[in-house]
């Protein structure tokens, strides 16, 4: 099976819904198990940091959330390419459905970062390069979602949103680079850096487990949202047919 026949095969919503119904329980179970295990490993098993004490445990939510925030944007950009090139409506729906999840992950990363910053840096917010670029990522998500919401015509909305997602994905590395540059010029070097020493296995393992759990959770919510969107569009077209008197 080539890539394009696979993509076109998924274009059939009924087939897609059947597939997603098969995947959903497994993904949900995996998400619960992995996040549960990750929380246990992170909160109980992993040792407290010798400098930061127990506050370091915020990391097990913060870092995976930040990874997922960027991963989701990559998913949106990828789905947008598929939607633009192969005119695949399900890819457009996937990109639309992924955006609020990505925005939520970004917000979680920002809020946990801020909560972590208070005991560590003595302030809720530092204009650190990472925090700043995450904040701008959040604005990109908000603009993307606002564009979807404002354009009534779904065909035009999908195209416009896909173009914006791609423009944003080209821009993101430039923004990241410029914020890093800006930060090194303006920021005193006293800020505690997370990536100081190499991460020990007792911390790395729960981190990776949590990241896998977050990914499974992402898959679950994404499939739910795609399903809801497909069903909403079906209801919409059924209502249109009813209004036109085609069916009663």
């Amino acid at each position: 099976m080539t890539l394009s026949t696979f993509i076109h095969g998924l274009a059939n919503p009924t087939r897609f819904l059947r597939l997603s119904d098969a995947i959903l329980p497994w993904a949900a179970g995996l998400a619960i198990a992995l996040i549960g295990a990750g929380l246990y490993l992170g909160l109980v098993v992993a040792p407290a940091d010798y400098q930061q004490g127990d506050t370091v445990r915020i990391m097990f939510v913060h870092v995976p959330a930040a990874w997922m925030a960027m991963f989701t944007y990559v998913v949106i950009a990828g789905a947008s390419v598929v939607g633009l090139v192969w005119k695949q409506p399900l890819a457009e729906i996937a990109a639309k459905s992924a955006a609020p999840i990505g925005a939520a992950f970004t917000l979680i990363a920002l809020v946990t970062g801020s909560l972590w910053g208070k005991p560590m840096w003595g302030t809720w917010w530092v204009w650190d390069a990472r925090l700043t670029s995450m904040l701008i990522l959040l604005f990109l998500y908000i603009g993307y979602m606002a564009l979807w919401q404002t354009i009534d015509d779904p065909v035009r909305g999908a195209k416009a949103a896909a173009i914006l997602a791609l423009v944003g994905s080209v821009n993101l590395p430039i923004i990241k680079f410029s914020v890093d540059w800006w930060n090194t010029l303006h920021q005193p070097a006293s800020v505690v850096r997370m990536d100081g020493p190499a991460i020990h296995a007792s911390i790395l393992i729960p981190l990776l487990v949590m990241a896998a759990g977050f990914t499974a959770y992402f898959v679950v919510v994404l499939l739910w949202r795609i399903k809801a969107e497909v069903l909403a569009r079906r209801i919409h077209s059924v209502r249109l047919m009813q209004a036109q008197g085609i069916i009663s």
């Binding site: 701008i136 604005f139 990109l140 603009g143 606002a146 944003g168 923004i175 540059w181 800006w182």
Partner: peptide, 13 residues
Amino acid sequence: LVVLPLYVPILIF
């Protein structure tokens, strides 16, 4: 909302 985040690099440099 759409454009201002994309202006960040120009502002910084």
